[in-house]
Nucleic acid binder design. Structure first.
Lengths: 336, 336
DNA sequence: CTGAAAGCGCTAACAT
DNA sequence: ATGTTAGCGCTTTCAG
């Protein structure tokens, strides 16, 4: 491994000069600097991030906390897309990514400890149980953090506009003549609470009285659960004319159930998803869904975090709202 | 930040003793060691991976090279699933993951340089252009590497059994009475070459003469391309009775095209995918596809790499074949 | 059993 | 314009 000292020796200069040349400091003869750089290049010099960090306390590493109970957080398109976006944006700024986890090396580390262990400059948190004491420990620590789809007081956040999302969906359904609207929700999280609140509010604005039997508790990304909820809805005396699902995967579970009953989408019953995964456009009929702008969410979160890291004084830990858009699709039928 | 020195001072001992206690060295009074550890715990000590690395040359960091032209490699379920599996397996062994990329911080770094910069102990390479000189530089370097779905001489690899996959598919099709089998391939990679070779071979074994018009060049994960290839196949005088697609996404593009022609799957024409993404089980009809064992691939690759890192002498850089399984599904119709 | 000291590769304040 | 030097936090010989 070639190091600064090697270059210094080869050039007959001090390591300080080499370091300066490599950083383009001004108090060095430009000729000398260029010479040093050419030698460095020729010798295949690559700086050592760890050695640098030890001195500067800056790792140029962004921690990413992305977990769920099933350890398959990355497999949900919404999150893998956000992650991909965080990765691309971070790299653009010269940062790398480190996944924060319960690092079971020799001994158990909490999220915060893991972040310290790897000296990350900041952490982006998404798709976790935000009530977890370890997550709270992390956001309350001195490490800059940005949360995605959740808001802590005084912590920067980037959130997809779930209120607007559900409002857009409901308004669209009303336009299409629907009033018997069922809603299968996701797990009980703040995102879900916002969606439900927006559902009631928008229904109210449209003078639609919500039938409580039409609200079913479901789970995110578990088609089977929404299939069951769908079955219950179909068993009602007064069936809904449209069912809203918590996400596009769940919608598929619902459609399967609907077809089992010999019904067709959207002729006999309409359905709406959420997320706007790529497949929602590939399926026939094209899925009616609210497309979350996952790429933008990742970009905003990363920019915010880097800003927080590099300009702690002038950056405020506010909330960034990212709006998506309704994909009208073909799974909602116009009534009357 | 509490460091070893702080603990040493608090205990009235030397930093050497503290370091030893923390590592459970035997040449230390057990009582003293336990005392030191309790103080460390109480003070909230977390080791500094970078400082340790500087001394030991071990980062406990695994580099992961995952790219494609569109910078969306992570969004393909096959790869995000492998990545998730690499992540989980690495963490189990006390390793973290660093994405290797063209790190555009101050100056451009090659993959190899980036790997050195971050001091990764080894690299897992997947989903890249394996002809890229930078990739070759990396695998030929002193850094331990494992490739996924590609084989270099003398480089450890973990590959999904594409030969068996296509064989299983073709044999199944033949059992179902098909002889007019079309095959839309993926990009021209070694994986594709293996699949095509296996296609010809298996057809031969079944005494089926392959009509060259039935072989179409396609692209992986681009439904539109396979849609077009499908259109060409449907325009033939003697249409195939079944079309094999390079992946499950592409299959959806094909189905869309088929339905545009007023044909139904599988009544009028059968289709087969590849990969076995989750959705392939959620769709109706359930997709007939070959399920690649992506989780196992990730686990094997990680284990191999760590073995290579920790036991360089005794570990051989061989090839590990991971087999999948045919998901019979419902998109292939039995003929006669 | 415990401690002193060297040094990993780098930066940056302080000389010269 | 260039060089000296003191660490960053840790491990690890080698002494005691």
């Amino acid at each position: 491994m070639v190091k600064i000292k090697d270059i210094a020796e080869r050039c007959g200069l001090s390591i300080a000069s080499v370091s300066k040349a490599l950083h383009g400091e001004s108090d060095l003869n430009p000729k000398t600097a260029e010479y040093i750089r050419s030698v460095a290049r020729e010798m295949g010099y690559v700086p050592n991030a760890s050695a640098r960090l030890l001195k500067t306390k800056r790792s140029y590493n962004v921690g990413v906390l992305f977990v769920d109970e099933t350890s398959s957080g990355l497999e949900h398109e919404y999150f893998s897309s956000i992650l991909n976006s965080i990765k691309n944006e971070s790299e653009k700024h010269g940062y790398d990514i480190t996944f924060i986890s319960h690092h079971f090396g020799k001994n158990y580390l909490t999220f915060y400890e893991h972040a310290k262990y790897r000296n990350v400059d900041g952490v982006i948190i998404a798709s976790v149980d935000f009530k977890d004491p370890e997550v709270i420990q992390l956001v309350e620590s001195e490490i800059p953090t940005v949360t995605i789809d959740y808001e802590f007081n005084d912590v920067a956040s980037v959130v997809s506009d779930n209120v607007q999302g559900v409002r857009d969906i409901v308004n669209f359904l009303v336009e299409m003549g629907h009033t018997k609207i069922a809603f299968i929700t996701g797990d009980d999280t703040s995102v879900t609470q916002k969606r439900v609140a927006s559902f009631y509010k928008t229904c109210g604005e449209n003078k639609i009285s919500v039938n409580d039997e039409y609200i079913k508790k479901g789970r995110y990304h578990i088609p089977k659960v929404s299939g069951e909820a769908t079955r219950e809805l179909l068993a009602l005396d007064e069936k809904p004319t449209v069912i809203m699902y918590p996400d596009d995967y769940s919608l598929l579970g619902g459609i399967t159930e609907i077809e089992k009953h010999g019904l067709k989408v959207p002729e006999d019953i309409s359905v709406v998803g959420y997320d706007g995964i790529k497949l929602s456009r590939l399926l026939r009929p094209i899925v009616t869904t609210y497309v979350q702008n996952s790429t933008e969410i990742g970009i905003q979160a990363t920019k915010k975090l880097i800003d927080l890291i590099e300009n702690p004084r002038t950056t405020i830990a506010d909330r960034t709202l990212v709006i998506g858009g309704l994909q009208q699709g073909e799974t909602v039928r116009k009534i009357k």
